[in-house]
Amino acid sequence: MAVRIKSQWHNDDSARSLEEIGGAIAFNGWKLAVDKAITLHGEHFIYDSDQQRMDVIAEYLIYQAQIVDRIASDMLNDEERQTLITALVLKMADHMADNATELLTSEDPRSDFIQRFNQRAGEYAELGFTDEGPSYPFMRHLGFEIQQVMGESQENRWVIDQVMDKDGPETYKQLKRITRNLFM
């Protein structure tokens, strides 16, 4: 399924704050994460619950935040990068909360997402990222986390391959383009 991405500003003359850029990346990232969750379903992987689907979306969002952080390290100083990533993650958490409140029993999906992000950030920090993108262990970590969420039933046994070979690389390519375009 093709996702409509908005990676350019309507008014090119205006300067954008890092918070605005982070919000725009989060908006597009949400759309990408939902698309990848739908793609998994379309490839006949089975979700047992709405919670499971939201957890998969959360893993894709965290993966994207890690990618943006790595891309931003080439364009921004440490303080600017921290501002951008904080705005990005908080906006992603808002998207999770807005969409999860009606579906899930969690009392605070925003805090749950931020806590999960903080845990995963330490895990992803140990994994390589080059000019060509995420390393094999970086992709494998995304696939592993999604497989943990979905379980290792007969239907979901190969979800890690789908994520590592197709969905993860596609998400990286789209997010790289989005991030670079929004900074121009």
Rank of each mutant, 00 (worst) to 15 (best):
Leu142Ser: 03
Phe138Ser: 13
Phe129Ala: 03
Arg16Asn: 01
Glu132Ile: 02
Ala33Glu: 11
Gln148Cys: 00
Ala93Thr: 05
Ile146Gly: 01
Glu107Asp: 10
Asp69Asn: 15
Thr130Ser: 14
Asn77Phe: 15
Ser7Tyr: 07
Ala93Arg: 07
Ser111Asp: 02
Val3Cys: 11
Met54Asp: 13
Met92Val: 00
Gln148Asp: 07
Met150Lys: 02
Pro134Asp: 12
Leu84Asn: 08
Thr105Arg: 10
Pro109Ala: 10
Asn77Tyr: 14
Asp94Arg: 06
Thr130Val: 01
Ala100Arg: 03
Asn99Thr: 08
Ile21Met: 14
Asp161Ile: 00
Asn28Phe: 10
Lys31Asn: 14
Asp74Ile: 09
Pro169Val: 05
Phe117Arg: 09
Gly133Ile: 03
Met1Pro: 02
Asp74Asn: 15
Arg116Glu: 08
Ile38Gln: 08
Gln147Leu: 00
Gly151Gln: 07
Trp30Gly: 14
Lys6Gln: 11
Ala100Asp: 09
Ser135Gln: 05
Ala93Val: 03
His10Phe: 05
Leu84Pro: 11
Arg70Pro: 13
Gln8Phe: 09
Leu103His: 10
Leu61Thr: 04
Lys36Thr: 05
Gln52Asp: 04
Phe129Gly: 03
Ala15Asn: 05
Arg16Leu: 03
Phe113Asn: 07
Thr83Asp: 15
Met96Ser: 02
Ile160Trp: 00
Ala15Leu: 03
Gln162Cys: 01
Ala58Glu: 11
Gln119Arg: 14
Glu19Arg: 13
Leu40Gly: 14
Asn28Asp: 15
Gly168Glu: 04
Leu40Phe: 08
Asp108Pro: 09
Asp69Glu: 15
Val159His: 00
Ile5Val: 15
Asp74Cys: 04
Asp48Lys: 01
Phe27Ser: 10
Ile25Cys: 15
